[in-house]
Amino acid sequence: MPVKAIKPGYHGEFRDRVENFRGQQLLNICWEKHTMFGWPMCIPVPPEMPFGALLEQVLPGIYGAHPDFARIKWNEVQWSSAKGPFTPDPSKSMVEHGFKHKTQIRFRTPGLDGHNGAG
């Protein structure tokens, strides 16, 4: 049952529909094992933004403070989402990668598993 309500057929308005984000969509990003950052990040991105811009312009601002970040070999990074592993193409956009509004993507950097084991 979608909800127990006094009146049958109650429907809750989706508060976070993509139309409410002024042309952007939300992307959640998680650097696995790096629990020092506390949480997967949530950012608004233009749907047509290429993946390369995410790598070059967005991620350093988010994760650059971590000692592991400068050592990442980007061609060895393992990317995945709830749908399973994927191989990103830097020239293709968020939409072309199949990322919908509120999609979560994760990346794993084997060998770089957090500073001194502390995330």
């Binding site: 990040m41 949530c42 988010i62 979560q104 995330g119």
Partner: peptide
């Protein structure tokens, strides 16, 4: 150390998704 980026939130309890897997404190819960 500073984190400047807003979190992915839990739709129900509204905590940021800060928690780790019950059997592995090094892996975020997804």
């Amino acid at each position: 150390f500073t984190n400047m980026t807003l979190p992915q939130l839990c739709q129900v309890c509204q905590w940021p998704c800060i928690y780790t897997e019950p059997d592995d404190p090094t892996e975020f819960v997804h």
